[in-house]
Design a binder for these strands. Structure first.
Length: 306
DNA sequence: CATCGACCCTGCGGGC
DNA sequence: TGCCCGCAGGGTCGAT
């Protein structure tokens, strides 16, 4: 299930194998793959023909390839999407939703997606909106352009534009549980169910902890944990549970061997040996250690007086 | 405006 | 054996 580390692995693969090449033909085999593109399958294919992919960029779980100064090919892998580069003559597997061949006659690029939650679209590049520029962002220099459909997606914790103080301030104003907040891509992007559980385990926080009760030290512990989990997964090549996720060349990741909580119901917590517990959460699962990640906190005077 | 649940989709595996 | 159902899950949209 591609989260930030997996998507970054794909981005790096595209940068290496596809950037600088010019599209000779574009084919769409399943219209759902371009459902968010107003031009439709035929319009999308026609508009992609002759385009050169200039850069491979990423924010959170989104990828995009600049085509010029104000247009890009945007990609989201959803749950099962893959971007595969390989010999143009190899047979089409059943889940190939779109395919690009290149003018140099070299390897082609295929978007495969069993569960069809992913999509591709051609869109414009705009200055990111939604948030007031902070002093920290101003120091970071001119803001880079982002695809218009993902203006609302927050910077991810591994990019320079991410503002930890702003994140903490917004978190404190929310009336929700900390895991919901971690999965809110307009607050912080790139985190999915797996790395949310892993980061919470590392920070020793319960998934249901109300965000407005988190102390400053807990928020910074959580952010440190998020960065560590994502960085370690990235260096391992991303997580993979089955053949659904493979990198740009079809190579599986292997970080699942180092997961501490996710998917380990009943197994001993690596810290204290208490069996990991699975809770139902948002029509899915949440895994935590009932001993290391207790749902208790000391109320601040302000909270107590309410 | 903020929050939350339904829904989209397919394949797999458990239970009967 | 075969069917049904639950589960996996990111993002969008509509309801509250």
């Amino acid at each position: 299930m591609p989260e930030l580390p997996e998507v970054e692995t794909v981005r790096a693969g595209i940068e290496r194998h596809v950037v600088g090449r010019t599209v000779a033909t574009a084919q769409v085999f399943n219209p759902r793959a371009v459902r968010r593109d107003p031009a439709g399958p035929e319009g999308f294919a026609a508009a992609m023909t002759g385009r050169t992919l200039l850069r491979a960029e990423r924010r959170g779980k989104y990828l995009w390839f600049a085509l010029n100064e104000d247009e890009a090919l945007l990609a989201h892998l959803g749950m099962s999407g893959q971007l595969l580069v390989g010999d143009a003559g190899r047979p089409l597997s059943p889940h190939v939703r779109a395919r690009f061949t290149f003018a140099d006659g070299g390897p082609d690029l295929r978007f495969t997606d069993q569960r069809t939650f992913g999509h591709l679209m051609l869109c414009s590049l705009v200055t990111p909106g939604g948030t007031t520029p902070t002093a920290a962002a101003a120091v970071a220099g001119p803001r880079r352009l982002v695809p218009e459909p993902i203006r609302h997606i927050a910077p991810d914790p591994l990019e320079g534009a991410f503002d930890p103080k702003g994140f903490a301030a917004r978190l404190a104003r929310k009336k929700t549980q900390v895991k919901r907040a971690l999965l809110d891509q307009s607050l912080i992007s790139g985190i999915g169910n797996i790395y949310a559980d892993e980061a919470l385990w590392r920070a020793r926080l319960h998934w249901a902890r109300p965000t407005d009760t988190l102390k400053k030290a807990e928020v910074s512990r959580l952010l440190d944990a998020v960065r560590e989990v994502l960085t370690e997964a990235l260096s391992a090549g991303g997580t993979s549970f089955d053949a659904l996720y493979v990198n740009v060349n079809g190579e599986s990741g292997y970080f699942d061997r180092s997961l501490n909580a996710y998917g380990r119901e009943g197994e001993p917590c690596p810290r204290c040996a208490t069996p990991i517990r699975r809770d139902a959460f948002m029509n899915r699962s949440s895994y935590h250690c009932p001993r290391c990640q207790k749902l208790v906190w000391l109320a601040s005077p302000a909270v107590r007086s309410r």
